[in-house]
Structure formats: C-alpha cells, structure tokens
Write a protein that binds this DNA or RNA. Structure first.
Lengths: 192, 192
DNA sequence: TATCGACTAGTTAGCAATGACTAGTTGAGA
DNA sequence: TCTCAACTAGTCATTGCTAACTAGTCGATA
C-alpha cells in the first residue's frame, strides 16, 4: 500500500541500501559514523520499526540471514525497484516544497504574554547565550576542511544560517521588550 | 506522574484556562480564532487527548458538565495550582533553552547527494519560488496594524526571520551547485 | 581470572497522535 | 418547507515512535 515514507529515517535506510544491502544494525552504525544523527532523529528501536514498515510496503526485501556466535540473527535487506523510486520521489519533494514546521520556540512566542515582560528579557538573554555557543560550534564545524567535501557539511551550513537568523531575531525582540514599549495588553496581564 | 507537558497544545490549553474555565471544544474555537493554529499544531482529536492527559496529571480539573439540546455533554475544565506552575515552568524553558529541531529540509540536505546535481538546481529553484511567496505573505501579515498589538504577531516575525534566512541559504547553495564546483564524490555518483 | 563497561543485535509494551466516525443543530437558499 | 452545508461536541481504532528490556560478546583492568 504505502503512500510514501513519512519518517526521514526511512529515507536514510533507502539511501544507504542504494550503496549495498545491509542489516539494520549496520545501517544504524553507518548513520552514526557519517554524523547524520545530527540532522535526522535516530533512535535504535525506531530504526527496526522503520525497516519493518519499509519491508511491509515493499520498498526493501530481506536477502539473507546470517549470525555471529550466539548473537541474534541478522537479516540483510536490499533495496527494491519501488524503494528506489520512492526514495527519489520523496527526496525531490522534500527539496522542492517547503514543509510547514512547528517549532517549539514558535509555540512559546505564541504564548509569550503569559510571562511578565521583565522575566522574558532575562530568559531571552539565556537563550541568546546558548545560541551564541551553538553558532560558534557550527562555524567551527563548517569551516572548510581538506578531508571532507563541502557538500557533506551542507546540513550544518543550513543549521548555521537558521541559528544566526534566530540569534538576530532574539536580539531585536529582547531589545523591544526591554525598551518597555510592550503594549497595553501584555502590560495589563501583569500588574506589578 | 507527569514529568511535564511535552505537547505545545497542552500549553495552549493551560494558558487559555488561565483566563477562565472552558470546555475542550471552546478551547479549540478560541485557538483558531486567535490564529494560533499557524504556530501550534492543532487537530481536533488531539485536543481531547491532551485535555485527558492534563486531567490525568492533575493540571486541570473538571468543574461542571452542561449540555445544550441533544448535543453531547460538555465538560468544563479549570486550571489547578500545579497546572499554573507547570505552564510557567515549561514556557520559561521553551524560551530560555533552544531545542534541537529536526527539520525536513535538513534531512533532505543530509541525503542530497542521492540526487544528480543538475536536478538539485531545478528543485532548489522551485523551493526558492515557494519561499518567496511565503515571505511576501509573512511581510503582509506582520506589517504594523492598528487593530493588533505587535506582540501578538511576534510568532510571524520569527517565521519571517527564518524564512528569509532560508531563502538566502537556498540561493547561495543553488549558485554553488549550479557553478559546477560540486566535488568529485557527488559528481562520481551520477555518471552522465 | 573475575568483573565491569561498552558494543552487538533485536524485541516488546505502552503511550501519544491522528484519521475517521457518530450524531445532533443551525441557517441559508431553492 | 425541504435539504444541504457548516457547525457543535466528542469518541474510537489504527499507526507509529520510544523507553526499556533481553541477551550474548569482547576487551581492559584490577
């Protein structure tokens, strides 16, 4: 059946299996070793779930089972034709069509009037500090290196671009709240 | 016994109940009328789930039940003391501590080498167009208005800041790929 | 050589979120 | 006045994700 692959982790599985057949645990190891877990949420158990779903939907197929010692049996999966197709299709859409994302901070902003303005200034200060550190890390990580081609750092460039934008936004926002020009409504909710 | 309120929708419920006791359906109506559904994912059925959880965890309490005609009974809930506490606590954390978000586009970037470079240029072009439209909308929405205080548009300002940053990033990225300086690895994956 | 932590490999139970469903009410237009 | 669409109000079944568990292996250290 299968209207597609919702979970990005599923796409990783398909993408990796394009290189060669593998068993789930190996997929997980590879994912970690290529540092994809920073961009794609990875939980050990989720991987097995996702593999099961991909199999159910006919995107991957068990090839052989092997076993080392008394450890559990490993099932090696291979990509099917429709698996390859769905990988390309989903990836194209992910790139071409911006998805609506619900960010935690966005939700917080939508409810920000619940907190008294002076406290918001303090909290935004804390966030600012964390963001600054994050940005420094990302700048370090994305600095041109000889051992890694730039295309493999592109996710971090993106994170960096967003983090910098957020930093600027928070700085502006904090200044606004700090200036005291906060509007009657918000002020009125917090009698001091 | 309740380690907090994971779902942002739960925070909306708590925040709204701070104003006055309400029944779930009314909460949903209010959420829509205040245009929070653009920042906080809202599904009718999820609301009832969340309300049930908040009740289970002692953050809200049923006050009375009423009924209009033959329509189902409505249960009116009120905020408890620990509900108020948890609302403030979670909101503070949401503001002060940047959460790691897993964005769809970020995942796509992590797997981008699966697609051939020329196609990526095209797809990024499509995304760029969508982003431009989105930015125009947000600019319109956040333009200073007499009938709404600026603090109630702050979520949109945030979205705008991020959208603009993404637009710039995509533009730069597309130019890089288009220039053909794409690295051996990526090129090698797509024999032409 | 006993033991402790890290690694290998996969399963399971429980909860949270969502699409689909039920069912009555109201108002506008034919 | 009939009916159709939109609204009111809530429930339920399915699916998916994750924390926690099982259980064996390997290497270092005391």
């Amino acid at each position: 059946m299968a209207a597609g692959v919702r979970n990005p982790l599923g796409l990783v599985v398909l993408a990796f299996l394009q290189e060669r057949p593998m068993h789930p645990y190996e997929l997980g190891r590879l994912l970690k070793s290529r540092n994809k877990q920073k961009s794609i949420k990875y939980r050990h158990a989720s991987l097995y779930m996702v593999v099961k779903q991909l199999h159910r939907d006919g995107y991957i197929e068990p090839q052989e089972t092997s076993r080392a010692g008394q450890l559990p049996e490993r099932t090696v999966y291979a990509l099917t034709l429709s698996g390859r197709e769905v990988l390309m299709r989903e990836l194209r859409e992910l790139v071409a069509v911006p998805a609506k994302e619900y960010l935690r901070f966005e939700a917080a902003l939508a409810l920000i009037v619940v907190l008294p303005p002076p406290e918001v200034v303090t909290l935004l200060g804390e966030r600012l500090q964390a963001l600054t550190e994050r940005i420094a890390e990302l700048r370090e990580k994305t600095r041109a290196r000889d051992d890694v081609e730039w295309i493999h750092l592109i996710e971090y460039e993106y994170q960096l671009a967003l983090a910098e934008a957020e930093e600027k936004f928070v700085r502006r926002f904090r200044a606004s709240v700090d200036s005291g020009d906060v509007g009657e409504l918000w002020q009125g909710l917090h009698p001091s």
